[in-house]
Design a protein around this nucleic acid. Structure first.
Lengths: 195, 195
DNA sequence: CGCGCGATTGAGTAATTTCAAATCTAGTGG
DNA sequence: CCACTAGATTTGAAATTACTCAATCGCGCG
């Protein structure tokens, strides 16, 4: 699948510059994996060793509480990264699970390899630092949204920021991501702008 | 204030190792600033150039919505870092403000200098990467808390994780941080464990 | 054609907010 | 040392919002 390789290269090049040699070396540390809808990449309790980068498809990471309710922490579609970072960085058993909403193709890289590459290739290290900074800011924005916007406004914001995501994700899951019951979401977005 | 210098050194040494020489060099890029309660370090609309590290005191970063309500994104006490990262990284005007809850002493470092130091000293770069990773995971945890815990449980969790913070921060501000009205918080924590 | 999943609707209930007023507290000046 | 004041906290009652549970609807897939 050379198109995947090219897709990954472009993904890096959007943020940092790499020689062909460097990229080849980086590429050699990734492995392709294919999953069907509803398959798990990470299940609660497991050891987590990989970062996943989505080449094709749609996944989610979520936490299931004592009462069995699922709460969605993150979606990931093409070009997004996903894992259970708490578990990955701190060598803890996973408290989250990651599974596929659509059939998906991902590239996996070991956290250990990622660290090794970060030491060896400055641009690679930089890439992840920038990604992490952006992600951090994104999470802060989401917290503000949860703190002071009502469900309707949260939905509208998501509509603005990620219109594609909205079309692909079942409403039930969206509701969980926004922190609303699916029934409430159903009622709320009917009056939302643009529908 | 050599005690501050020593405090900063310890802060770095907890995570990475630095030679005395390296630390001296790093130290030379920080400037000490003192603020009184209610003074602002960052005001909405300003350009943001600095990271702040708290040596003494207590600060908050917050967003004020259209209706004038303040929503607290972060507190920062001794050894914590604070700024408006969205503005800092993307060279945008601040959407947050940062101000003092108590009289405070902070060390300021320019983001440009931080980047320069990160290029020059690998351990320094590593320090921030690890901080950022930890912070990222922390924000994810907070999102989960906001998504599926009721106010009472959010308060109890904060009590577990940051008991010192709870004692220093006015309840009104805590309420804003937890996403509850101050009246509700007042009612809720009266039945909370340990009171 | 029918099953099953996802989405919607309705009715009643629970949790939280809002607004207003009362109470408490720490710091200030006399 | 005490009275005073501003800020913070608490209380009460009504209003609102969102949730739960149950039933119905709609549609794509086999």
């Amino acid at each position: 699948m050379d198109s995947i390789k090219e897709q990954l290269r472009q993904h890096f090049l959007q943020i940092v510059s790499l020689t062909d040699e460097e990229f080849e070396y980086i590429w050699s540390h990734f492995t392709i994996r294919k999953y069907k809808k509803r398959q798990f990449l990470i299940q609660e309790g497991e050891t987590v060793k990989y970062h996943f980068w989505v080449s094709k498809g749609l996944l989610k990471s979520s936490y299931t509480d004592e009462s069995g309710k699922e709460h969605i922490l993150q979606f990931a579609m093409e070009d997004w990264w996903i894992s259970d970072y708490l578990a990955l960085y701190n060598h803890m058993p996973a408290s989250l699970s990651v599974d596929c909403i659509e059939d998906s193709e991902v590239l996996a890289i070991l956290e250990d390899d990622r660290q090794k590459l970060a030491r060896e290739i400055h641009a690679f290290s930089n890439f992840f630092l920038q990604k992490k900074n952006g992600g951090y800011v994104g999470l802060q924005q989401r917290i503000l949204l949860l703190l002071f916007k009502n469900p309707r406004e949260r939905y509208e914001r998501l509509q603005q920021l990620q219109p594609r995501l909205l079309q692909r994700v079942p409403k039930t899951l969206l509701a969980s991501y926004l922190g609303v019951s699916r029934e409430s979401l159903s009622r709320l977005y009917q009056g939302a702008v643009g529908l």
